[in-house]
Design a binder for these strands. Structure first.
Lengths: 82, 82, 82, 82
DNA sequence: GATGCGCTTTAAATGC
DNA sequence: GCATTTAAAGCGCATC
């Protein structure tokens, strides 16, 4: 069991924790900004789920996108959903 | 079903998508910064899982404090039944 | 401010809370079962994301599924992803 | 790319999908039960948002208790640096 | 392979 | 009562 903790070490640990918390805060702010943009898009009549899909697709390799599609078709076929 | 989009609307959609992608990019950068700080902490000999846990606990603490405050008021309402 | 709370009312409240917590527990157990089945499917070589998509599609009205598809195509077109 | 699925594999896939759908159904039933209990509580004059909050807080409490226990051990590790 | 984290989606609550 | 805003649950991803 540790009885005494080095003051310096404690301070270092505290600093790291606070730096990370600050970064987390920034991330949350950006997430809020994203929400605002989404709302704005919605108010223009755009469909949010579709916009999300588009962003996902753009980020993705087109090769991979095709393979995903094909696999889905294959499974549909197997379940007579074709 | 709508099947054509005018040029102006196309541009608007493009803008929204790009703004969101930019924000996502920023978020990723911050996540990378967090990783850097984590690595630095690790190089000082700190245990990463522990640091994460501390941060989670601190977040819970502040949330809990806020909620408990409200809860008191709510209790009055809930138990002061007709 | 309420100083005293009717013992009977307290008990009733407690009972409701506990019944709900019990139900939550059951739900969690079933969610765990689902995970097990998923893992088993995976170990047979099935692709989990695709299985999820299939289930979503089966649950969904086929009319609605088509509309979703069309909207996505429309947005793709607008962003020259066609 | 695979483009055919043998009969046996089809059947396996179908079974997995149906098992998962069955589990989803059960979960939905329990969620309905929860709603019933909530309604009943409400008819006794209890405030639903408050009940939710109580449950959330209780869950946080038990989580927090567990985590804090572990954290003590972890701290030793983190601060007992080489 | 498992755990934690963040996003998506759906349900509820409140205000108009 | 409807629609907007907010909270809870579920899902998927990334990390270790």
């Amino acid at each position: 069991m540790i009885d005494v903790i080095d003051v310096d070490t404690k301070q270092k640990l505290k600093n790291f924790v606070e730096r990370i918390e600050r970064l987390d805060e920034e991330k949350r702010n950006i997430a809020d900004d994203t929400k605002d943009v989404m709302s704005e898009a919605k108010s223009f009549g755009f469909d949010l789920p579709t916009i999300r899909k588009i962003i996902r697709l753009r980020k993705m390799d087109s090769q991979k996108a095709m393979e995903e599609e094909e696999l889905l078709d294959l499974y549909k076929q197997a379940l007579d959903m074709a």
